[in-house]
Amino acid sequence: MSLDNKKVKEIAHLARLNIEDSDIEQATAELNNILSLMDKLGEIDTGDAEPMAHPLKMSQRLREDKVLEDDLSEEFQAIAPKTGKGHFLVPTVIE
């Protein structure tokens, strides 16, 4: 599976990464080079192997429904790039 520049731009947007037009050729070539390594997966006969998402066969542990967290909002907001009136601020989002 080979990517073209348009697809690379689409993926970059999905990942919210910017690729300058001047860099797109190189980025596409590099990704295709890497993907050629991954495409070897297609040649492997995996038979009826179960997809393995976790290295250990464990099940999810459940937490008791208890409030354990204190309000640390001031500490958290002290390291935020932009805050106001107790909120995190971003450029206006147009709905």
Binding site: M1, L41, G42, I44, T46, A49, E50, P51, M52, P55
Partner: peptide, 18 residues
């Protein structure tokens, strides 16, 4: 692309583990 890449890789992961 999910099946061809992610899911396939998970299956190979199983084989490696086995």
């Amino acid at each position: 692309y999910y099946d061809a890449y992610y899911l396939k890789a998970q299956k190979v992961r199983q084989l490696i583990s086995e």
